[in-house]
Design a protein around this nucleic acid. Structure first.
Lengths: 229, 229
DNA sequence: CTCTGTGAACATATTCACAGCC
DNA sequence: GGCTGTGAATATGTTCACAGAG
């Protein structure tokens, strides 16, 4: 939740892309990859927007924050645009992440197929439970929490994933920050406090379903009222 | 992404709570539960906001959409507010969900501890792979896709979770909708199209990390420039 | 003529600041 | 006096609609 702000474009190189746009750039990248696989080498904002599931105007506005990478009257060169977005979001390099908490969810994340093609490399697994330390999960050996500092330093890891129970989340976040991690993806159902300069994003599996349940309830509750339609 | 809209409060009973507020209500519920466990029976908007990780004004505005459940000069009764929010988001009942795709992620979701206490009950597991059908995961037997219609109908399930590879996602979504599912949580890295009236929410594990990577890149790239501070 | 890039209009969300009740 | 509930102000995000490049 502690996300850096810089939405105004100042001088030359510092861009300042809106958060909402940043969150969609990976979606566009995926859509462009799909088009490449289909052998499409050029596309309009309408086609790309369809593949990404957004409104074409929104897509064009989003891309306009990066620069003018299209051709008026023609559209976008798929490969060129793909490279430009990849460069913008740092996908020209791989990012190493360390996962803390190798329970069911942590194990699933460790072997998640979708990461490698998106510039994410699971570089290390850490767990507090001595029973799990030494275990091998999809080619990686689970390390002890005591080795966290060394792992983060040695492999120059800046992104950590918390996949522990909620009760351990804050403690783990503190350890990650102390080890030098500056970005955290938190799957634990708990709020974690971090110092300024550290970004946290939260994925809460229950909350997503609770939101759907809310809408379900409304559907069920409202339909009887709208008997005319 | 196809979320029903009704932000305007019309006559009496139809409320119309903003999406952003709906997404935070489960967070408040969790914070209230935490306070109850600590033996706190009353709290101010400031205390609750701290526990939920939001601004107190935002919290008060969010709660104002539900009604006036606080007492001026005093604060909120934890138990009473907890009940009111629970009722609003449909947490006074349990919601059955069916998970499709029992790979690593699907298995992890099946045994996720956080659901049961949040009104979510994993009622059925389904997989297209005959090898997996019949397997038992945390007390549930994996069923065949052929049985999907019967399962959804018999257990009156309205929420489905897609945990398949991206390539299967649209096919699975179609099957879920055909079976009568009206809300889908999609973990597959793919866009799914659904008819009007069906809600889809998407959780994309890669994208969350890619967004963090973007911010990491900025931190790394910008610091050398801001040498004065 | 086609399709991008973008100012302007609109919609939603957040935060401020204070009136009103306890 | 203290804290909620909320109008008003601000910030952010989305969509429209069209000027302008090719």
């Amino acid at each position: 939740m502690t996300i850096l702000r810089s939405p105004r474009l100042a001088d030359g190189s510092a861009r300042g892309i809106p958060d909402a746009t940043v969150a969609r750039l990976p979606v566009y990248l995926r859509a462009l990859n799909a088009l490449t696989e289909q052998g499409v080498s050029s596309c309009s904002s309408i086609e790309l927007a369809e593949n990404a599931g957004v409104n074409p105007a929104k897509l064009r506005k989003d891309l306009s924050y990066l620069g003018s990478y299209g051709t008026r009257g023609v559209g976008y060169d798929v490969e060129y645009l793909r490279y430009q977005i990849a460069r913008e979001i740092g996908q020209t390099q791989d990012w190493d992440v360390v996962i803390v908490g190798i329970g069911n969810l942590g194990s699933a994340l460790s072997s998640y197929q979708g990461f490698s093609t998106r510039g994410i490399r699971v570089a290390a697994l850490v767990d507090a439970d001595p029973q799990r330390v030494g275990t091998e999960i999809s080619g990686l050996t689970v390390s002890s929490m005591d080795d966290l500092d060394a792992i983060v330093a040695d492999r120059a890891i800046s992104i950590g994933v918390i996949a522990t129970p909620g009760t351990a989340a804050q403690e783990v976040a503190d350890r990650l920050v102390a080890a030098g991690i500056t970005s955290i993806l938190n799957f634990a159902p708990a709020l974690v406090q971090v110092p300024d300069g550290v970004d946290v994003r939260k994925v809460d599996l229950s909350i997503e379903l609770q939101i759907l349940a809310y809408h379900e309830q409304r559907k069920a509750g409202i339909e009887p009222k709208v008997s005319g339609i």
